[in-house]
């Protein structure tokens, strides 16, 4: 048993119990349904802005892009304009590929010792695949949830739903009925990706070694969100009209506690609230930070265009005069030109 992930797992279980018991026995609907979500959104919004502004208050003194390809130099040498951007539009493209397609992670490869002590660097795209699958499906799931927050539901969200539920998964066993409501692929892929990311953190020794409880916590938490969501949609079935009436109440600032919605919904909502509130104080801020990373968001053109450092201060230097004063005699002797000849014969 690894205390690092047990800690996080227990934390998430406690959160679950908090919400579950809070609703089931204490009936704290207003707290879990209204106050906590509002507070969480507030903390999230303000926290993220605060963190970004905090970052922004430190300048970028130097232009330090990591160059991952040929620089722009002589006109006949093919320039790697994305990996070594020289202009801002190339930087935008580089950032776009970075943020949307995780381009740097795509380069990932695994180092291996081989027979004959030959090193090899092999295909290791699973992390990339897992990361892309996780982030994209999370995005799709979030956007899909806007159906609970908009009335009428915008067409583009409906299209996304259609696309997401294009493949039908319909079957019925003695224990399980799946098919109506239609199955959204994104939710399942999200869960699968989470499980992959979790397993890798648990069982790849290197990754486990560098992980903290704080790295497991969001995984378990988002897994909790996904599981509670999937449970409500595919197993328990909840009155989604009532839920939408409730969520619409939240966003129109007329919150009303709905009738007939089970505690799992409040667990789901509580998990989401925790995630939002936790976000600005954690590594999850990488979502914002990736945009501010100076090794990626700058052009490699500081030889062509001067970059100014706002805190550039004068430093003590060893001037030529001091230098010549020290070595003048020897310089003259060696026939090196000097600024000032010897004045008094040494």
């Amino acid at each position: 048993m690894n205390s690092k992930y047990m800690f996080s797992l227990v934390a998430v279980i406690i959160l679950f119990l908090l919400a579950y018991i809070g609703i089931e026995t204490a009936g704290l609907y207003t707290l879990f349904g209204i106050w906590i979500p509002y507070a969480a959104v507030f903390i999230f919004a303000v926290g993220v802005v605060y963190r970004v502004v905090d970052w922004a208050q430190s300048p970028v003194p130097f232009r330090i892009p990591t160059t991952c390809g040929q620089q722009k130099s002589l006109p006949w040498i093919r320039h790697a304009s994305i990996d070594n951007p020289a202009e801002n539009n190339n930087v935008v493209l580089r950032m776009f590929l970075e943020v949307v397609f995780f381009r740097s992670l795509f380069r990932n490869m695994r180092f291996d010792f081989n027979k004959g002590n030959k090193f090899s660097y092999e295909w290791e795209k699973w992390l990339w695949v897992g990361a892309i699958a996780f982030h994209w499906t999370l995005f799709v799931v979030v956007v899909r949830h806007l159906r609970f927050f908009t009335e009428p539901v915008p067409l583009c969200i409906q299209w996304l739903e259609t696309l997401d539920s294009f493949l039908r998964v319909e079957f019925m066993t003695d224990f399980l009925q799946i098919g109506l409501p239609g199955v959204f692929m994104s939710g399942l892929v999200l869960l699968a990706a989470l499980i992959y990311l979790l397993l890798r953190r648990m069982f790849i020794p290197q990754v486990n070694y560098i992980s903290f409880s704080a790295d497991f916590f969001p995984l378990f938490l988002i897994m909790g969100i996904a599981l509670s969501g999937l449970f409500m949609r595919y197993l328990a079935k909840v009155d989604i009209v009532a839920i939408k009436a409730f969520t619409m109440g939240l966003v129109t600032f007329h919150p009303v506690i709905p009738e007939g919605v089970g505690s799992v919904f409040y667990v789901h909502l509580f998990f989401v609230s925790i995630l939002l509130a936790y976000f600005p104080f954690s590594k999850l801020m990488h979502a914002g930070g990736v945009f501010l990373s100076p090794t990626r968001n700058m052009a490699n053109n500081s030889r062509a265009e001067r970059h100014v450092n706002p805190w550039n201060y004068p430093v003590k230097v060893h001037t030529y005069e001091e230098y010549e004063d020290e070595f003048r005699e020897k310089m003259i002797e060696a026939g090196l030109p000097v600024e000032k000849e010897l004045t008094n014969g040494g």
Binding site: N114, K115, K118, S120, Y121, E122, W123
Partner: peptide, 12 residues
């Protein structure tokens, strides 16, 4: 993929 990768790395 594995054969080509091995060829690239010149390993078995």
């Amino acid at each position: 993929w594995k054969v080509l990768e091995a060829e690239r790395n010149e390993v078995m």
